[in-house]
Amino acid sequence: MSPRGVAIPDPRARLFDAAERVLAREGPAALTSRAITGEAGCAKGLLHAHFDGLDAFVAELVLDRFARAAQRAEALPGRAGLDTVNDNLVLAAHALLSSLDPTVAGLALTRPDASLRIRRALEGGAPGFASIQDAITAYLAAEQRLGRLAGTTDTEAVALALVGTVHHLLMTTWTGAPDPREQAERLVALLVGSAAVDTGTEGGAGADRVPR
């Protein structure tokens, strides 16, 4: 427990991390203000000093994790031309699956007021799955310009399919469920295979640029 009067570095991050541990160990039903502050090892009133109640805290936790995942996705366009398209999209999918804990992603479903706060924040421009989709679309467009994806590829549809699948996997992954990473990899292989550059004869122009 932090001594009285001693400032806690980045209390929001400390409380968010504590909440994730409570969720992972005991599930959404155990997420109370007392459980969170107890796990964080801080005064019971700290949560309410920084958030307008538990629903506001839950909303901010989910939005923070969405923003973290979106930030990681923003780096993807910079990888255009590096490694393979398949590898880069798999890397992005794995990053999203690890950045957003399934329990956190589905947490708002258990708290209607928190869900409303999240929806309003996303409508107001807070980063979320739409931002992640935009980053993947930008990456795919960059690969098109480099000739590593067919010019006819619907980059927005490919990005939507990948992000939609990751969202689905996050919301439906539980103990004993199939490995979501393997499922995401299969989808990426399908999407990239359908968008591969037609090189014509073996060894023809651009043969070394076909994504695999």
Score class of each variant (00 low, 15 high):
Leu170Thr: 02
Leu76Ala: 09
Pro112Arg: 05
Ala161Met: 02
Ala105Arg: 14
Gly5Phe: 09
His48Asn: 13
Arg148Cys: 10
Ser194Leu: 15
Gly106Ser: 15
Phe57Tyr: 06
Ser131Met: 06
Ala24Trp: 04
Thr32Trp: 06
Leu100Asn: 09
Ala141Arg: 15
Met171Gln: 12
Thr153Ile: 06
Ala130Glu: 12
Val166Asp: 08
Arg145Thr: 14
Asp101Pro: 07
Ala126Asp: 13
Pro3Ile: 04
Arg14His: 05
Leu170Gln: 05
Trp174Cys: 08
Asp154Val: 07
Ala67His: 08
His168Cys: 08
Thr152Trp: 12
Ala135Pro: 01
Phe16Thr: 05
Met1Cys: 10
Ser98Asn: 12
Ala189Asp: 14
Gly125Pro: 08
Gly164Thr: 01
Glu26Ala: 15
Ala75Gln: 12
Arg120His: 12
Pro28Lys: 08
Thr152Ala: 14
Ala157Gly: 06
Leu140Arg: 10
Gly45Asp: 04
Gly164Glu: 09
Val192Phe: 05
Glu26Met: 00
Pro211Ser: 11
Gly45Leu: 07
Val158Gly: 02
Arg148Ile: 11
Ala70Glu: 04
Thr155Ile: 01
Arg117Met: 12
Thr173Ile: 06
Glu182Phe: 06
Gly124Cys: 00
Thr84His: 04
Gly206Leu: 10
Ala105Met: 15
Ala141Ser: 14
Leu170Val: 04
Ser115Glu: 15
Gln71Asn: 01
Ala130Tyr: 01
Gly81His: 11
Asp55Ser: 15
Asp87Glu: 14
Ala126Lys: 03
Leu61Glu: 05
His167Phe: 10
Thr165Ala: 09
Thr37His: 01
Leu54His: 06
Ala207Lys: 00
Ala18Gln: 01
Pro3Phe: 01
Leu47Glu: 00
Arg209Lys: 13
Asp83Leu: 09
Asp64Lys: 03
Pro180Phe: 00
Ala184His: 03
Gly41Ala: 05
Val62Ile: 08
Gly81Asn: 12
Glu156His: 08
Thr37Pro: 02
Ala142Tyr: 05
Asp113His: 13
Ala43Leu: 07
Pro211Cys: 14
Arg119Thr: 15
Leu76Lys: 10
Thr175Val: 10
Lys44Arg: 14
Gly106Arg: 15
Gly203Val: 09
Leu191Cys: 13
Arg181Asp: 13
Ala49Tyr: 02
Pro3Tyr: 08
Pro102Arg: 09
Glu74Phe: 04
His94Asn: 14
Asp198His: 13
Ala13Thr: 13
Ala7Asn: 06
